[in-house]
Design a protein around this nucleic acid. Structure first.
Lengths: 197, 197
DNA sequence: CCTACCGATCGGTAGG
DNA sequence: CCTACCGATCGGTAGG
């Protein structure tokens, strides 16, 4: 039961769609309005200007993807925690809405200072923080070799990010993601073999 | 002794600079011309249209960065080969011209189909091919544990790519890259510990 | 939410 | 390489 979308949300969704394809500059107010089915001037009843639309979208990008309840307990299970993490990451990579937001992120990252700062902070201090916490617990439990948990977390996350990037690129051109999709789990296995005691 | 640049090269350089900051759409023919010091119409004496400039730049992005002579011999040295690779990668990450081209790549990757295809092919079939060849030799020599060399090559390269991305983002805003810069070598060490027999 | 309109800027061409 | 110009499109406003 999708609830009735109000115009403001329609504008946001149309803008995400267009920016994900043509970037912020390419997503003109006119195109956004046309996609919604209104005149361009009507946009300004909902947003002060074009940039306000982008700001709203950016704030949607960084709604935390991962929130593990009972992190400490799950972390003690070692490998299965990493698998759970990877499966969650994979789901997000293939989620339609999240994928569009990921494209917006990648396109505007080099052109928008606020987005860059959010990326460097949020992306790190949310996913990596949780992951490093879990890795630290695994070290304490003697499940994995010791080391800097933050660094290890990045080692674990970076390949996932790279796979996600490839998935996103392949899907734009409607190419098969089957070969690459299995790499998520393969990475978790490889990483576990690398650090397990 | 930088040789005298001709106008065509000046146009390319100005375009790279502008596209790296504002994207292809934001880099108008007028701005490019102004940066060179000519009128916009004069651009068309050197390029049929704006897109031709971008095509030229894209072709510059994929000039192979790594060509290891005596790959087989070097690969037999195991860890020191990986370190050499990482140092080369790091140098490229901090090279001014290469960094600008990297930004152009990242900005346009989601908006330019030709660029996407080059990225998925060249980026893979050059760096990864060589790396996997080296890893295969290391396996034969009994230096590292066995596995799919292509997959392992990607596992090695992906974190380097992610670090490079972060370096690039930090440098746009003139932030310190000191903490992140050491991660290149740390990654090589971590990877070696992960696979070494 | 609409019609009507604004100045600025876009890629590109004509003609020299 | 220039001046001069083109139609198209841009973000945004006035007024209803």
């Amino acid at each position: 039961m999708p609830k009735q979308k109000n115009t403001k949300q329609k504008i946001i969704d149309a803008a995400i769609e267009l920016i994900a394809k043509q970037g912020y500059r390419g997503a003109s107010v006119r195109k956004i309005a046309a996609a919604v089915g209104i005149r361009e001037s009507a946009i300004y009843n909902h947003f002060r200007n074009k940039e306000e639309i982008l700001k709203q979208i950016i704030s949607e990008i960084f709604v935390t993807p991962f929130e593990f309840k009972d992190l400490e307990e799950k972390a003690k299970k070692g490998k299965s925690f990493l698998h759970q993490f990877v499966v969650a990451y994979k789901l997000i990579s293939f989620d339609k809405k999240k994928e569009k937001l990921f494209r917006v992120l990648m396109i505007e990252l080099f052109q928008n200072k606020g987005l860059r700062e959010s990326f460097l902070q949020e992306f790190h201090q949310k996913d990596i923080q949780q992951l490093s916490k879990a890795l630290f617990i695994m070290m304490q439990e003697g499940l994995i070799r010791s080391g800097d948990p933050m660094f290890m977390a990045q080692e674990f996350l970076a390949p996932l990010f790279y796979i996600r990037l490839q998935v996103s690129l392949l899907r734009i051109d409607s190419k098969s993601t089957a070969p690459i999709a299995t790499q998520f789990e393969k990475h978790a296995d490889f990483f576990w073999e690398s650090v397990a005691l």
